[in-house]
Simulated scan of single mutants.
Amino acid sequence: MNKDRAEERRLMIQTQILSRGVKDQRVLKALETVPRHFFVPEEFADVAYHDHPIPIGYNQTISQPYIVARMTELLAPEEGDIILEIGTGSGYQAAVLSAMGARVISLERIAELADDARSNLQKAGVVNVSVFVSDGSLGWDEMAPYDGIIITAATPAIPSILIKQLAVNGRIVAPVGPQHMQVLIRLTRDTEGIRREEYEGVRFVPLIGRHGWNS
């Protein structure tokens, strides 16, 4: 069996990503490069490239490939950007951003998941991602301002503390709304203020933290 699963990645891109309108070639290349099966529990390796989220333990999931692609395309990271990720999970989203040339600071509140993500990233050969155990809703002021911030859990609103950590011309992408259903939001900071755009409906696990959900 092909352990690299390159053909599965190509099929994933053709049937799940391109067919739904994601066109950014850099995003597609990153998805083709990153071995998604390294970022799921071993028992789910054979379905790693299927069109659905996968449980990774601790009531958390790795998002389906399309959602990762869509949020990455909306974030539009450039080579050399510093990106803050809220919710490391298994490390897959961070690995995709890294493959696009970004430096990623990733925050995970569950220490065991953070350890797993570091192991997954190392196995995949990713070197420009730093994972910290922290309340992601507070951000990470030490490396601010960020060229991009991506929240990979449902938040009732985008925390103002994160907006303050965003650079001029930077973008925040997040699922915003009640716990049962959210809308993808992109905020862009320019010299005149903050511009808000709304996209499709999504469903994520909740962001737990001081500026997220309590539980």
Rank of each mutant, 00 (worst) to 15 (best):
N2T: 12
N2H: 12
D4A: 06
R10L: 15
M12P: 08
M12Y: 13
I13L: 09
G21W: 08
K23H: 13
D24N: 06
R26K: 15
K29E: 14
L31W: 09
E32Q: 13
P35T: 12
F39A: 05
E42S: 12
E42A: 14
E43M: 11
F44D: 07
D46K: 03
V47R: 05
A48K: 08
A48S: 05
D51M: 14
P53G: 12
I56L: 14
G57K: 15
Y58V: 13
N59L: 15
N59G: 12
Q60N: 13
S63G: 12
A69P: 09
R70P: 09
R70G: 14
T72H: 11
L74V: 00
L75S: 02
I82P: 07
I83R: 05
T88L: 07
G89H: 07
G89Q: 06
S90M: 04
S90K: 04
G91F: 09
Y92R: 03
A94R: 01
L97M: 09
L97R: 01
S98E: 12
M100I: 04
R103P: 14
V104H: 00
S106H: 09
E108I: 04
A111K: 07
A114H: 03
D115S: 15
D116G: 14
S119E: 13
S119Q: 12
Q122D: 13
A124W: 13
V127S: 15
V131P: 08
F132W: 03
V133E: 03
D135H: 01
G136Y: 10
L138Q: 00
W140C: 05
W140L: 04
D141K: 04
M143Q: 06
M143I: 06
A144G: 02
A144S: 00
Y146S: 06
G148R: 02
I150G: 01
I151F: 01
A153N: 06
T155D: 08
T155G: 05
I158E: 00
P159L: 00
S160L: 08
I161S: 01
A167Q: 14
A167G: 11
N169Q: 13
N169M: 09
G170K: 01
I172D: 03
A174K: 03
P175Q: 02
V176S: 02
G177M: 11
P178D: 08
Q179F: 15
V183A: 15
I185T: 09
R186N: 06
T188C: 10
I194C: 06
R195A: 03
Y199K: 05
R203A: 09
P206Q: 08
G209D: 04
G209R: 00
R210S: 05
R210Q: 07
R210K: 07
W213P: 05
W213M: 06
